[in-house]
Amino acid sequence: MANRLVSPIVWQRATVIETVRETPQARSLMLALPHWQRHRAGQHVEVRLTVEDGYQAQRSYSIASPPEAPYLMLTVERIAEGEVSPYLVDVVQEGDQLEVRGPIGGYFTWQASQSGPLLLVAGGSGIVPLMAMARHHALAGSTTPAHLLYSARQVDNIIYHAELEQLATEDQAFAVFYTLTRGAPPGWAGFQRRIDLDMLEDVGWPPAQHPLIYICGPTPLVEAVATMALHLGHAQGRIKTERFGPTGGS
C-alpha cells in the first residue's frame, strides 16, 4: 500500500477540514493528510510553521483521535505570549494547510491488548493523548478497567467535557474523576484541590493489581504525580510520563 512507503518523518501538507472550539483557551483541529499511517493512542505529531522570510517554528502536539478515526485530531491550548499555540487556536481556519509529520513516539502509547487496569492522569491540555486512549478503549470494546483523573483550573477549562461524560456512561469499564484547582461552581461533586496522595490512592488502583499509569501535562504536575505514584508503591516500569514543558495549565 502506498502509505506504507511514506516514512512518518516526511513532512506532509495536512488540510484543516474542521475546527472545534473546546474551551475559551483550546481548539481542536481535524486534519486530513495525504498519507496517514494508523497511529497508536498516545503518539504525537510535529507541526512546522514557516514565515515568508524562511523563519520556522516547530512544536509537538499529541494526537487526540483514536487509531480507529478516519481523520487526525489535534487539540491545542493557547499559551499567553506563546509563539505557535495562539496561531493554531485563533488564526488557522478551515481549508488552511499545515505541515505535519508523524505519527511519532513508541514510548507513551497504549493499546487495548495491553494487560493491567489503566490509570490515566491528566493536567490541563495533558488530556489530549489520554483522550485518544479513552476513545480507543471505548471503540475497541476493551474490558480493561480504566480510570481517568483530570485536573483543570476551572470547570470551563475541562476539554472534551461532554464527551468524557458520555464515555463514562457508555463505556462500562471507564470512569472519569475531575479535580478543579481554581474554584468550582455550586454543587460541584468532584475534587477541588491539586492532586495529592489521597486523591491518587482513592482514584487509582492498588499496586498489587499492577496498573499501567499514564501521566501527561505540564512538567511540574507530571513530576509531582509520578513521585506520588512511586510513593504509593507502583513500579517505575508501569508509570509512563509525557511532559509538555512549562506550559499547559492545570
Binding site: 512518518p8 504525537h44 509537538s60 508523524g102 512538567t219 513530576e223
Partner: peptide, 18 residues
C-alpha cells in the same frame, strides 16, 4: 523554573527518527 523545562525523551522521537 528550569526544572519545568524538562521533557521526556519521547519528545525527541521525531529528531531521532530522522
Amino acid at each position: 523554573m528550569d526544572a519545568s523545562r524538562r521533557l521526556d525523551g519521547n519528545a525527541a522521537a521525531g529528531l531521532l527518527r530522522e
